[in-house]
Design a protein around this nucleic acid. Structure first.
Length: 591
RNA sequence: GGGCUCGUAGCUCAAUUGGUUAGAGCGCCGGACUGUCGAUCCGGAGGUUGCGGGAUCGUGACCCGUCGAGCUCGCCA
């Protein structure tokens, strides 16, 4: 060991001891004779004092130290004199009087100082991620991530779950996200796919009798990125045999409380609240409502169906809806100009306009208020729960558009008006998702969750009449407006599975070729089973009240899925391609 | 694939909205200093304004393209 103690672990209790510490030069203060170094490691800071009367040579060497040099310092830990105590740092009452110094690694001038308040642009941070990782924010994020993983493992281990690793090199299957492919050398022209999730393997583990499985599993999806989405990410993957939906829900309730207890130290009230998908869509406009604040969607269609405002009337006549939200006491917080910005904002979600009214002296104040009689105005105000000073927004459009636009507007206003404590974490279940959605592009029904999800038994008759109405035995866990887990009761009857493949347009022989192993397994004594997967990165992000998933991943990728540090992806040698029997065919305009 | 934003010194930013030699703070280099703690003081170096075209008497600023980064719609079973 090159050190006897970590910088951050030294306390007044160590006073008088001879210590050797290693770390990075956080800052230096050279007084000509006396020289101070703040030495940093993962655990904290300690001041090291170099005095020529202790060791002239060490003092001389110390004069050459600069930020981010890595050194080893030896000396006696001393209590500082009362007047020299620095209350700003944890170790402010102690310091090391250095007797020896070794420079373990001199640092070039770093492109940015990891301890500076000026956080450099992300491009630079990603290029020098090893420097960025020295920043306390990233260190604490990774530490929390580790603690969360430990808590997860502890929770499941105590309940007889076993962690099983599943392959990274798997079979490409239709449905779902775009695969990352890996060429096979020994099978010319053939490819593995990296897992989008261990979905099929964990079901096969159930058939294999594992009974209770979990895995902290890496997943890969070759789709466009977002602030909360990376091409490779981590799931807390769970599957159980001989259980139904309630068992998964209560098991995960316990997991959430355990995670909160471990990272926040508080007891989270259980059971977690539940809401149907239909209710979420109606009250919040989306299937991942942020329930830290209200401002729910209200339908005023029945009130305004005979009003004088043409846009509202014609929307209703064309099967549309008129829904709105009430931004309490925000009438003075949004000017005409900022409302124009909001109008453009909802336009991104397809809304053709954004009607707004300020509630003023019991009436509506707006350029379009004149189209509404006093009775209409009073009814709208009452329905919206309006009070003087409120600002009402309405979107008149097809149901889907009103949902999407108002859901997004609600989230934006909630944030801008600071309607919630950003540190708060509020979790709920969303249940009864539709099993199938109509894919207009491909002119077929497709699975909303995945094709292994069991239909709700009460809805089977809709297969022939109205497949969009079939509810799935599926459930999402939603936290602060993010989808944080998703799961379902699986199909364990090969006939049902076959029927579903057939229904989503997968031909018998294709189903046999792509999913034959699963159909086969279901024919050899498959237990009823159900499961779920939690997005680990998102949970870490939420516990840190962060909105950027890259800040909770040690080595994340950019929006174009490249690694700015290693410069992956990159071309490979012609020899490698020949071995794999691969020829590239990149159009000239993409080179 | 679409929309929006950004790119100026090592870093964070400014540049009176198109007008003289592109500035500041931090960092860096040199010097002074025995109790600092984001030390202080004195001096200094440091710029192809991402790249390529264009418009203009004149551009860091305007236009077009391009590269990179971010946000977002589509996409993400």
């Amino acid at each position: 060991m090159l050190r006897t103690h970590k910088c951050g672990e030294l306390t007044t209790n160590h006073a008088g001891q001879a210590v050797t510490v290693c770390g990075w030069v956080d800052s230096y203060r050279d007084h000509g004779n006396l020289l101070f170094i703040d030495l940093r490691d993962r655990y904290g800071l300690i001041q090291v004092v170099f005095d020529p009367s202790e060791n002239a040579e060490a003092h001389k060497l110390a004069q050459s130290l600069r930020s981010e040099d890595v050194i080893q310092a030896t000396g006696k830990l001393k209590l500082r004199d009362p007047g020299l105590i620095n209350p700003k740092i944890k170790s402010g009452e102690i310091e090391i009087r250095a007797t020896d110094l070794a420079v373990l690694n001199k640092s070039k001038q770093p492109p940015f100082l990891p301890t500076s308040d000026n956080v450099p642009n992300e491009e630079l941070r990603l290029k020098h991620r090893y420097l960025d990782l020295r920043r306390p924010a990233l260190q604490s994020a990774l530490i929390m991530r580790h603690k969360l993983c430990m808590a997860v493992r502890e929770y499941f281990d105590k309940q007889d779950f076993i962690e099983v690793e599943t392959p990274m090199l798997g079979k490409s299957t239709p449905e779902g996200a775009r695969d990352y492919l890996v060429p096979s050398r020994v099978h010319p022209g053939e490819f593995y796919a990296l897992p989008q999730s261990p979905q099929l393997y964990k079901q096969l583990l159930m058939v294999g009798g594992m009974d209770r499985y979990f895995q902290i599993a890496r997943c890969f999806r070759d789709e466009d990125l977002r602030a909360d989405r990376q091409p490779e990410f981590t799931q807390i993957d769970v599957e159980m045999s001989f259980v139904g939906q309630e068992d998964i829900l209560s098991t995960i309730d316990g997991l959430v409380a355990h995670m909160v207890k471990n990272v926040r130290g508080v007891d989270y009230p259980l059971p977690l609240p539940r809401m149907t998908h239909a209710e979420a869509m109606e009250r919040y406009g989306n299937d991942k409502p942020d329930i830290r604040f209200g401002m729910e969607l209200t339908d005023i269609g029945s009130i305004v169906k005979d009003c004088g405002f043409g846009v509202f009337k014609s929307t209703l006549e064309n099967g549309g809806r008129i829904r709105g939200i009430n931004a309490k006491q925000a009438a003075d917080k949004y000017s005409r100009k900022t409302i124009d910005e909001l109008t453009a904002f909802v336009g991104e979600y397809g809304a053709k306009g954004l009607a707004f009214f300020r509630v003023k002296e019991g009436k509506l104040d707006s350029p379009i208020a004149k189209f509404f009689s006093d009775e209409h105005q009073a009814a709208i105000i009452q329905k919206m729960g309006g009070e003087n000073g409120d600002l009402l927004f309405f979107v008149a459009d097809q149901p889907k558009v009103t949902s999407a636009a108002l859901a997004a507007l609600r989230v934006r206003l909630g944030k801008e008006l600071k309607l919630y404590d950003p540190m708060e974490v509020k979790v709920l279940w969303v249940l009864d998702f539709p099993l199938y959605g109509w894919n207009a592009d491909e002119n077929r029904w497709e699975a909303e969750h995945h094709p292994f999800c069991n239909p709700n038994k009460d809805d089977l008759h809709y297969f022939e009449t109205d497949p969009g109405k079939i509810r799935a035995q599926s459930y999402d866990l939603v936290c602060n407006g993010y989808e944080c887990a998703s799961g379902s009761v699986r199909v364990h009857d090969p006939a049902v599975q076959q029927k579903i493949f057939d229904f989503i347009g997968l031909k018998m022989e294709d189903a046999e070729e792509k999913f034959g192993f699963l159909l086969n397994a279901l024919r050899y004594g498959a237990p009823p089973h159900a499961g779920i997967a939690l997005g680990l990165d998102r949970w870490v992000m939420l516990f840190l009240a962060n909105d950027n998933i890259r800040d909770v991943i040690a080595f994340p990728k950019t929006q174009k899925a490249s690694d700015l540090m290693t410069e992956a992806p990159s071309p490979v040698d012609a020899k490698q391609l020949r071995e794999l029997h691969i020829k590239t065919d990149v159009p000239a305009e993409l080179k």
